[in-house]
């Protein structure tokens, strides 16, 4: 199936940000001018399919771009929104974080009407979710990457020995 975000990645021209995992473009049909789209290079339909490392990166890149929006456009606020699944408003089948600059009286309204739940209903929901979160397992590779990264940071001090140390430490159990 044709995916406009994959086409953008293939074109590789209009990125406002790009690294090996994540790219960002300025939305040509924005909620407000300066609306940015942050998405993984690889095609994933929903966030659950995205490896942990890239999922985390989507948020930190969105944050960096949000800072840029504040400074470059003098935005008074920003919203970061992920529409995960069609009922959540997702229109393109490729995971994407929206970074939206906000201004007073910009005509946008993302407020929702709160629903009233009684104590029993709240407790039932709490229990159901808790039973699931107890089984959360993070991607294993990710932990290793964090460890190596920390070691790398320490090694910056000893410039000359960098490669040797890196090789050495990777061999450690």
């Amino acid at each position: 199936m044709r995916c406009v975000f994959c086409e953008e990645v293939a074109k590789g021209e209009n990125f406002i940000y790009s690294d090996e995992d994540v790219v960002a473009v300025v939305n040509p049909v924005p909620a407000v001018p300066g609306h940015i789209l942050v998405f993984p290079r690889k095609h994933f339909q929903i966030i659950e399919q995205v490896p942990d490392k890239i999922a985390g990166k989507l948020f930190s890149v969105a944050n960096e771009l949000s800072k840029v929006v504040f400074e470059a456009l003098h935005a008074q606020g920003t919203n970061i929104i992920l529409q995960n699944g069609v009922p959540a408003g997702q229109t393109i089948p490729h995971v994407c974080l929206h970074v939206i600059p906000r201004f007073q009286n910009d005509g946008l309204d993302f407020q929702w009407k709160p629903k009233q739940l009684n104590e029993d209903e709240m407790s039932t929901v709490e229990l159901k979710i808790k039973q699931c979160t107890e089984g959360i397992v993070f991607d294993k590779e990710e932990e290793k990457v964090v460890e190596v990264k920390e070691e790398k940071e320490e090694m910056k001090v000893e410039e000359g020995k960098k490669d040797y140390l890196l090789e050495h430490m990777e061999r450690l159990p």
Binding site: I47, A75, Q76, I81, Q83, Q90
Partner: peptide
């Protein structure tokens, strides 16, 4: 589906 939402600033 799930909506994720972050608001920075009163605006």
């Amino acid at each position: 589906g799930v909506s994720m939402f972050i608001a920075n600033g009163v605006a």
